[in-house]
Design a protein around this nucleic acid. Structure first.
Lengths: 143, 143
DNA sequence: GGAGTACAGTTCAACATCTGAACTGACTAC
DNA sequence: GTAGTCAGTTCAGATGTTGAACTGTACTCC
């Protein structure tokens, strides 16, 4: 993919995942390891050439690792790395928005309490929520 | 854009914003109203035809509204709707990931305390954080 | 009043990417 | 030996993107 404005973290992330398919692959891998054919089935409509290409790009970026589960014939499955798992919040934010504004009958749910969850800003230093209106993207020099 | 799996909120959202440019337009509009030429300058490298097309799609989706600030010659500026502002969390999540894993020297910061913020899951019913590992995407029938 | 500039796009050809369908090659099961 | 599975690859046609140039309206300066 294009290497664009490296200084903006949003643009840098979109260089990797800014297309129709990549985050759907990540969405499904968040549930656990999957084989090529399983991904093909779960990411509905993805052409195998695109899936193959996206998995290579994600592997090169360290988001996914390919693991052989069979030597002969060579068979592999794909697993998210820790870096890949952290993309879950992006997928979650998309899901959260889609639940509210696009037609869908899926939702993000906390396994333990069973309630629907939101994706919000949080300051780990102050250990509290940061309202959307207060959050800005700033340069290193401003910090 | 393509109308795909309407039942998955992630796919539904990506139908609208799943491309290289749209979320960069949203990122810049999060700072306030902007004119066409201002967007062209701030979303670096965007071809005017793409910007024009994306703004039309966002307007049709109710994410952005076009407001005339001059009648003759017709001049307009673009503002996020409430729905559009809620996409800020998606942009935030991308920024958050990019800060950590892509090269960049920008960060998400809380205006008030000045600390860097994260994007996390939160259960509004229990009023507490939901760890990533506990969050699942479920269908309406499972609820 | 004429030249130059700004703004908000549109048009167009070249190029890149995506799509869908078919195919490959290694193996297993019957 | 026939059929099926798996993990992709190949290919032609459709679609989307890019960069450059262009359009029309109006303002500003001399």
């Amino acid at each position: 993919m294009i290497q664009r404005s490296v200084r903006c973290p949003v643009a840098a992330t979109l260089d990797l995942v800014g297309d129709r398919w990549t985050l759907l692959v990540v969405r499904d891998l968040l549930r656990g390891r999957l084989r090529f054919s399983e991904l093909r089935a779960s990411v509905e409509g993805i052409p195998p050439a695109i899936l193959s290409g996206r998995l290579k790009a994600l592997e090169a970026a360290g988001v996914v690792v390919r693991r052989a589960y069979n030597e002969r014939p060579p068979r592999s499955e794909y697993v998210l790395t820790a870096k890949g798992h952290r993309l879950g919040v992006v997928v979650g934010a998309l899901a959260n928005w889609g639940e509210q504004f696009a037609e869908s009958d899926l939702a993000l749910v906390d396994n333990q309490c069973g309630h629907g969850v939101n994706v919000i800003y949080h300051c780990p230093t102050c250990e509290r929520t940061s309202p959307r209106s207060r959050v800005r993207i700033v340069g290193a020099d401003a910090r």
